[in-house]
Design a protein around this nucleic acid. Sequence first.
DNA 1: CTGAAAGCGCTAACAC
DNA 2: GTGTTAGCGCTTTCAG
Lengths: 342, 342
Amino acid sequence: MRKRVTLKDIAKIAGVHVSTVSRALDSTARYSLTPEVVNRINSIASELGYEPNRVAYGLRTNRSMSIGIMIPDITDILFPPLIRGIESVLEPLGYTGILVNTDEDPERERHQIGVLRQHGVDGLISGAAHRDDPALLRVFEQGLPLVTMTRRLDNPKVPYVINDEEDGFRKIIAHLYSLGHREISFVSGPLNLSTGHMRLQAVKRNCASQGMELKSEDIVVANRFDESEGRRSTLDLLNSGSNATAIVCANDRLAIGAYAALREFGLSIPGDISVTGFNDNPLLEMIPPGLTTIRIHQFEAGATCARVLLQLLQALPPEKQGTVLPVKLICRESTGIRKLRD
Amino acid sequence: MRKRVTLKDIAKIAGVHVSTVSRALDSTARYSLTPEVVNRINSIASELGYEPNRVAYGLRTNRSMSIGIMIPDITDILFPPLIRGIESVLEPLGYTGILVNTDEDPERERHQIGVLRQHGVDGLISGAAHRDDPALLRVFEQGLPLVTMTRRLDNPKVPYVINDEEDGFRKIIAHLYSLGHREISFVSGPLNLSTGHMRLQAVKRNCASQGMELKSEDIVVANRFDESEGRRSTLDLLNSGSNATAIVCANDRLAIGAYAALREFGLSIPGDISVTGFNDNPLLEMIPPGLTTIRIHQFEAGATCARVLLQLLQALPPEKQGTVLPVKLICRESTGIRKLRD
DNA sequence: CTGAAAGCGCTAACAC
DNA sequence: GTGTTAGCGCTTTCAG
């Protein structure tokens, strides 16, 4: 491979010292040089196709200009837009992201954090946080800038950006109530994730305040936020002979699983039973009946995380520890007026 | 932030020289030391939570242990599995991936290549290659290990891993023929991409050899591999009054767009017209009618790319310049026997 | 305004 | 077997 051009190469040609070249190429240090020499050096640099060596820069300055992005699984349609959001604010500032998957496995997460450390990332954005997450907590305590995305730790000190789950389920419950539903069942996400936990709390609270029934037999907890668990959970619900007229799901993937289960039982949506989701995955519109759900701002969530991290990187105290992004109810065809009892 | 533990710290405690510590921690250099001192150093290192500084390592050895992964847009469901495939082989060897999006924009691609260079990536996997791609060609000529994924350059020297598009469309055309179809139309992908170009050639060739008609008016070229272009292209086709009884699409997303267009025309699939795709996106099964398509091995494609890159990194001549992965026909409900003319 | 020199943390000859 | 030394490419004091 052809050798890279270095400051030394430029210095030799320009007949100046490397430190002069370094200054000429650094917009904040340029001021101290003769414009003439700055121009000469710049033109030589671009002629030679000089690319600064960030590895050397990083060693010297202890800033790698890279940030770690941790995700449970990039294959989940939820995460790519978040990543683009992060990129949209970090890239213009010269940062690059190193992406790793944790598969919700704490051991793997620990390992990946080590890898990111070794690379000297300047900060960390985690979309893979668990409520109790010793590895992330240690990162935080060691002072490496960290913000969690879409999820949060139980520990309130760790900066986070999440969606307004409370408001989302308030809207869903109110919507169902207005359609005449008085007893619902809930397919919850895993409770070791803040999303799982908070959504369950939100549903309980809002049912109570609306005067809707949510029996404990009508709550089933999925082990993962995915279709197969959505199907399994819904089958459990159906087999238990519940009277609920609507199934509220903690996210869209669970709801799609619920569709499958209901189909197997020969029940129609929303004729026999209504179903709701959370997130508003883009492909949803193609899957009939269109799912009534809550739209979150994925791209914006990523971008906000990046902005918060940026403040942390500049050692500014973040404006606030946690940011809660607004959400919106999207009504489609999966919810209808309560079926009359026969 | 708490200062990182360095070799020097360990050396001081162990009462040896840094180079001794370096050797003790390097499994290939350990042999030259007393087992006793190796053990002592290792235990001190793990006690202190030593993490090697890859930036320093990289500067010294000129190997960053990172590889660049270029993707048009991570938001496209096609790419995440490829990335997991790459990761599955590179990660165990200690490599990490730096992911960048190009949005099919050559200028952005050029920029991202620069960024990756600056980070000193040891190699590059591009899923964003264009048939004529000066920027990638330059990377190749400069000797930076490079392999293109799922797509290839026209220049046959650049290593690539692609799917067997020829065989895929052979299977599709044969399938349609067996259902009685004799005249089809084709929604092609962009011709500046090898996938677009090769699929068009494959369809033409296989129609000819089967004795099926593919009029030039029955070919419409989409500007992007996405749903909106699939819809637009299909509308063009329908408005032109073609006699084709099946619409072959260059990928699944175009086919989903075709579904929308046909729905708007009040045509039923496959009653009035059959539709086929390519790729077999996982969510497809949920969208009725189930799309008949070609399944490619996404994860495996990524993994294969990584393996090829690994050979290149060890300066081994790759076993072959190009790898073509097998594909499989998946028959669902979007194809049926040819509608009888009225 | 520019040069000299030190050093970030690590590896790899080369000594002894 | 282990220590010494040099240096990867860069930034940043300190001189002059």
